[in-house]
């Protein structure tokens, strides 16, 4: 038996909108730790890892570990029927081939049940080791989204370079080239607007902008985004989910032949 009650149901709606462009079908894993997902895009270039910790739910019952295969577009269709202020409860019985999403209005005057068919998904699970990164950039998520959108009208790839001067996002294409530099800016009274750069050593990596743009769909989950870079590793683009967990996107770099 599984029963997870999330008072801030809009978080689940936002999570779905953030990942459904990247991943079509995925297994949601439920354990004592929390509600999680790990999935790759169809090209195996990007990976998304989601964690919603058990403590973040008002009620969390998961009698035994359960993996539920869901089509994310279908799940998004169902969650779009929940109001933004609704409380969402996810329910499933052991061995069942369906999951139920229950939506309760804040005043408890409307209760809806949506039952969705589960599917068998044969997915690879990758071990992601804890790593030291050469540079970690924390910046406003809206700013990062704007930069990725702006650069993708010029080129297909972005070179992210971190030096002691700041973080530089560069692209070039048929019509020309562009460079955007963000300097460290620790605005004291508005921490959500800060740009903080922790650099062990300079790093410069190239990534496909199409994926970066897709990751920025998670911007509504968090005011800040953290970008972790190392020359030997995929970049990690992380959005914290208020008090509950995170959504992390990993993207393999493009390497010069």
């Amino acid at each position: 038996m599984l029963e997870l009650r999330l008072v801030q149901g809009s978080l689940l709606k936002k999570v779905l909108e953030a990942i459904r462009e990247l991943v079509t079908d995925a297994n949601f894993d439920c354990s004592g730790t929390g509600f999680s997902l790990q999935a790759m895009d169809s090209s195996h270039v990007a990976l998304v890892a989601l964690l919603l910790r058990a403590e973040g739910f008002e009620h969390y019952r998961c009698d035994r570990n359960l993996s539920m295969g869901m089509n994310l577009n279908n799940m998004a269709k169902m969650l779009r029927c929940a109001g933004n202020d609704d409380i969402i409860t996810i329910k499933a019985d052991d061995g069942s081939d369906t999951v139920t999403f229950m939506f309760e209005s804040p005043k408890q005057d409307k209760i809806a049940d949506f039952e969705m068919k589960l599917m068998d998904i044969d997915s690879e699970h990758l071990g992601i080791p804890d790593s030291e990164y050469q540079a970690i950039v924390r910046m406003p998520s809206a700013e990062f989204m704007r930069i990725c959108k702006d650069l993708s009208s010029i080129g297909d790839t972005v070179i992210i370079s971190v030096t002691k001067e700041g973080v530089k996002f560069s692209t070039s294409g048929e019509i020309g080239s562009a460079n955007i530099v963000c300097r460290q800016n620790q605005t004291v009274d508005k921490p959500e607007e800060a740009t903080v750069i922790e650099m062990q050593e300079p790093v410069s990596l190239t990534f496909a902008l199409r994926y970066m743009n897709s990751f920025t769909k998670a911007s509504s989950l968090s005011d800040q985004v953290t970008i972790s870079l190392s020359s030997e590793l995929p970049v990690v683009v992380e959005y914290k989910i208020a008090e509950m967990g995170y959504i992390r996107f990993y993207l393999a770099p493009k390497i010069e032949e």
Partner: peptide, 14 residues
Amino acid sequence: QCIQKKITEYFSKT
């Protein structure tokens, strides 16, 4: 010329 690496070249299956 850049080649796109895959995530599976960095992280292994568990």
